[in-house]
Design a protein around this nucleic acid. Structure first.
Length: 310
DNA sequence: AGCCACCCTTTGATGTCAAT
DNA sequence: ATTGACATCAAAGGGTGGCT
């Protein structure tokens, strides 16, 4: 059920906020797999676990929902899952905040971080400030009928048996595409087959494990346990990834899981982290106490450039 | 016992093609 | 050329399963 917005749009542009430290971290995050950190900071299938993992990598505490902006109360950080459909990059609608919080403030200065839906590897980041025409375009949502006129910012309430609801602000997927925020198709963004993913996860109770195919020929040794992995070379060539069959012997980590291979040549590797560290994290070949944190590997600049208008 | 930054089903839009 | 049956595709929106 869609409801009217509670907060009217602002009539003036918000100040533009930036932080050189956050920008450096965002640049370095491209190519970073979030799965290993998610296992560390969030329980198995909790919602938003990869967003929590990103916050942790940026040096923040995995945050709870409140009205303050994530980064020094100046910049909101939003993780958006993306995948390839029909050759184009797409995403889902995105929750902004609960109905009690002003969404215009949340969206005033945002660092968007995009992660591939299949691999949970960060593929791009960009900053936005809701100013000028962008602000006026979104402000139109205030006067549109929430049901019939498809506003890009809307309130959605969930009817429950007891009549209560937890309404929240959402941004439409159309808005992210229309504003040109989504990254272009390129390395690291794979097609996603939600049917196969959902079925496989249901069969095994957990998300499938990823292996990187360095030789696209159709079989290789598992780098976690040494067991054989087989997959269709044709599917790998066509889609960049393929369902995989892990034969015996199988290690304790591999046995209870479904398996996927992704084409190593189509991965997006990080610029500031050694590729072998990236592959260790992507394939979950890393002990919980050894998971490295991006913020500890990226030096903090002396000047965060808070007061400079770019 | 609630809760929910997911993901699947439904619905509507668009494309294809053969019969008039 | 026009129409309608049928197939295919993507966006909307809400239910549900596993979490705290």
């Amino acid at each position: 059920m869609r409801l009217p917005l509670r907060h009217p749009p602002p009539e003036h542009d918000p100040p533009r906020r930036r932080c050189a430290h956050l920008e450096a971290l965002a640049r370095a995050a491209v190519g970073l797999p979030l799965g290993a950190a998610a296992d560390l900071v969030a329980p198995g299938r909790s919602r938003g676990r990869h967003g929590n993992a990103l916050q942790w990598h940026l040096g923040l505490a995995p945050h709870d929902a409140d009205a303050r902006l994530d980064w020094e109360d100046r910049i909101e950080i939003k993780l958006v899952s993306v995948w390839l459909r029909g050759g184009a990059v797409v995403c889902d609608k995105l929750k902004v905040c609960d109905l009690g919080v002003d969404p215009w403030h949340k969206l005033s200065n945002v660092l968007w971080v995009f992660a591939d839906r299949l691999t949970r590897v960060v593929v791009a980041s960009r900053s936005s400030c809701l100013r000028g025409d962008a602000r006026r375009r979104l402000a139109v949502s205030w006067s549109l009928d929430p049901h019939f006129e498809q506003p890009d910012l809307f309130v959605e309430a969930r009817e429950r048996a007891d009549g209560t609801a937890a309404p929240a602000y959402y941004l439409s997927a159309r808005w992210l595409r229309g504003e040109g925020l989504l990254p272009a198709a390129g390395p690291g963004i794979f097609p996603f087959d939600s049917r196969w993913w959902g079925q496989t996860r249901q069969e095994h109770g957990r998300e499938p494990l990823i292996s990187v195919a360095l030789d696209p020929g159709g079989q290789q040794r598992c780098r976690r346990c040494g067991g054989p992995i087989r997959f269709s070379a044709e599917v790998l060539a066509a889609d960049g990834w393929a369902p995989a069959h892990h034969g015996m012997p199988m290690g304790a980590q591999c046995a209870p899981r479904g398996h996927v291979v992704v084409d190593g040549r189509r991965l997006l590797l990080p610029a500031e982290i050694p590729p072998e560290d990236m592959l260790d994290a992507l394939e979950k070949r890393i002990a919980p106490d050894a998971v490295w944190r991006l913020s500890e590997r990226i030096p903090e600049p002396d000047d965060h450039l808070h007061d400079v208008e770019p």
